[in-house]
Amino acid sequence: MSALIGPVPDTWHRLLLGDACQVQAGPSGATFRPADRASHGVRMVTPKSIQDDRIVADGCVTIRPEAADRMKRYALREGDIVCTRVGNGRRHALAGPEHTGWLLGGACLFLRPHAAVLPRYLNHYLRQPMVQDWLAQRVTGAVVPTVTAGTLGDLPLALPPWETQHAIADLLDALDEKISAHHAIIRSTEELGRVLAPALLTGAVLPPDSL
């Protein structure tokens, strides 16, 4: 049986993303006003908050608790997948327990998987090049590229049985951890090179075997 990502087993379900999860766009300008911002309060996720497949506090907007109460429908839960919907490139990240209660920003949307869909599996599915290409071909807006909630809801999804979703997600999560570890080693090595190079090239520090 063929799917967007290629042939899949007959035991897998083919459905639209909108039938597998709630697709919720962020608040409009009429709902979230500049006066709602505050130096302390509830974090609101923006596209800048999605970095390296993670949701980080850096880039978040902070809003008043009273304003957050007014926008409870946009509050995140563990297992939600937050996606950028405005700008070039489609980034997304999985919300963890630490993000519970954070709010969805207007330039983002979240996917809240139904009970039969493992969030970690869906998160990996959305990364696939064929999926990203499908979304890129359906952006609207010449000046500011945008993906609507309706478009995302029409994304074809290949969904294996629950146990298979877990097995796939576990393996890909393990590979992600190894990739992150290697990237950390590369960054540390590059930093060491930047620090040592000036000292070595000016003779301030010499390699041990040259003394």
Results as ranks from 00 to 15, higher is better:
2 S>Q: 11
4 L>A: 07
4 L>Y: 06
4 L>M: 08
9 P>E: 06
10 D>W: 10
13 H>C: 05
13 H>F: 04
15 L>Y: 03
15 L>G: 01
16 L>R: 15
16 L>H: 12
18 G>Y: 11
18 G>L: 11
24 Q>R: 13
26 G>A: 06
31 T>E: 15
32 F>T: 13
32 F>W: 13
33 R>Q: 08
35 A>M: 01
35 A>G: 00
38 A>D: 09
40 H>E: 15
40 H>Y: 12
41 G>I: 08
43 R>K: 15
44 M>W: 05
44 M>Q: 11
45 V>K: 01
46 T>E: 04
46 T>Q: 04
47 P>Q: 14
47 P>V: 15
50 I>T: 08
51 Q>N: 01
51 Q>Y: 01
52 D>F: 00
58 D>C: 03
65 P>C: 04
69 D>P: 01
71 M>H: 04
73 R>L: 05
74 Y>M: 12
75 A>H: 06
78 E>H: 11
78 E>N: 12
78 E>S: 15
81 I>T: 09
81 I>R: 09
82 V>A: 01
83 C>E: 03
84 T>L: 04
85 R>K: 15
86 V>H: 01
87 G>H: 11
87 G>N: 13
89 G>C: 10
91 R>D: 02
91 R>L: 03
92 H>L: 10
93 A>M: 09
93 A>R: 06
95 A>C: 09
95 A>R: 02
98 E>P: 00
99 H>V: 04
100 T>C: 11
101 G>E: 00
101 G>Q: 00
104 L>W: 03
105 G>K: 01
105 G>T: 01
107 A>N: 10
108 C>S: 03
109 L>W: 03
109 L>N: 00
110 F>H: 10
111 L>N: 03
113 P>K: 07
115 A>F: 05
116 A>V: 06
117 V>M: 01
120 R>C: 03
120 R>D: 09
122 L>C: 10
123 N>Q: 13
124 H>E: 13
124 H>M: 07
126 L>Q: 00
128 Q>N: 10
128 Q>Y: 14
128 Q>R: 15
129 P>C: 09
132 Q>K: 04
132 Q>C: 00
133 D>I: 05
135 L>R: 05
136 A>S: 13
136 A>H: 10
138 R>M: 05
141 G>F: 09
141 G>W: 09
144 V>S: 11
144 V>A: 12
146 T>I: 06
148 T>I: 13
148 T>W: 13
148 T>Y: 14
149 A>M: 02
151 T>W: 04
151 T>H: 02
160 P>R: 14
160 P>D: 15
161 P>D: 08
161 P>V: 08
161 P>L: 12
163 E>L: 11
166 H>D: 08
166 H>A: 14
169 A>I: 13
169 A>G: 11
170 D>P: 00
171 L>E: 09
171 L>P: 00
173 D>W: 00
177 E>T: 08
177 E>F: 05
177 E>R: 14
178 K>F: 06
181 A>T: 14
181 A>Q: 15
182 H>V: 11
184 A>I: 04
188 S>H: 10
188 S>R: 13
189 T>H: 12
189 T>N: 13
190 E>S: 06
193 G>R: 15
194 R>S: 14
196 L>D: 06
196 L>V: 04
197 A>L: 15
198 P>L: 09
200 L>A: 07
201 L>G: 07
201 L>Y: 10
201 L>M: 15
202 T>D: 01
203 G>Y: 14
203 G>K: 14
207 P>C: 11
208 P>D: 07
208 P>E: 09
209 D>Y: 01
209 D>Q: 05
209 D>S: 07
211 L>C: 08
